[in-house]
Write a protein that binds this DNA or RNA. Structure first.
Lengths: 118, 118
DNA sequence: CTGTTTAGTAACCTAAAGTAAACTTATGAA
DNA sequence: TTCATAAGTTTACTTTAGGTTACTAAACAG
């Protein structure tokens, strides 16, 4: 993570180990940082929740957003989708163990935000 | 943070305490989650860094981006800008104490990302 | 005289992100 | 019969985020 700057004999500067492509922090942010994503995951951490209930909980987000983020979370194996019944279709979403592991980031984030009144 | 669903006598559902406007997690993410923002802050956590050096370190980001994020971070009091000299203008940026407090989020994020090979 | 450095600005543009509202198919209730 | 529910999908936009390239002005190097 240390990026060193060196000048050559002609005074031209260059960086050793530039953070050229997204470093872990950047990548992590891009995994969790999408709009509403962390909130959604947070709501699924304790109990399975049904789609419409979830959409209602995340009041500010449209169903399309919720749907999109759920699909991403599912693809990342952070959330599991379970069909309870066809016909009157019923579906629940819940955080996987891996999804819950992200709480090691979200919990400090929550604490930090509250502590500083942000 | 608990959003309860209740059905009334007629079976209509509604949510008590909907997460209507961005909850702390969401707000925190929006403060730290912009592209390159966390990376930039990370690079300023130990030593003051000059603008162009920083731009070189964050290889993937354009100067405009770096500049924009620095201004946001400055406005949020997470980074301090210091002019070392006019004429051949020289400027350094460094994380403030508040900026460093965000490491309580970024460090777990880094660990999480690396642990899971993301 | 040309090229480099400093710390940005400005203009322009595109791709992606997000929003709102309507629609679907089937079920159950008043 | 009309309304509400379920879990989305579709359409039709608007917004904004981000990228690219070129430019500034003053100073120094070869």
């Amino acid at each position: 993570m240390k990026s060193l700057i060196k000048s050559d004999t002609k005074g031209r500067k260059k960086v050793l180990e530039p953070c050229l492509e997204p470093c872990p922090i950047e990548r992590g942010m891009r995994l969790l940082g999408a709009k509403w994503k962390a909130s959604i995951l947070w709501h699924l951490k304790d109990q399975p929740v049904r789609f419409n209930d979830l959409a209602r909980m995340i009041g500010g987000a449209s169903k399309k957003m919720v749907d999109q983020r759920l699909k991403e979370l599912e693809a990342q194996k952070m959330v599991k989708r379970t069909v309870l019944s066809e016909r009157p279709i019923a579906v629940v979403y819940q955080a996987t163990d891996f999804g819950k592991s992200a709480l090691s980031v979200l919990e400090p984030l929550l604490k930090w935000t509250e502590k500083h009144h942000l």
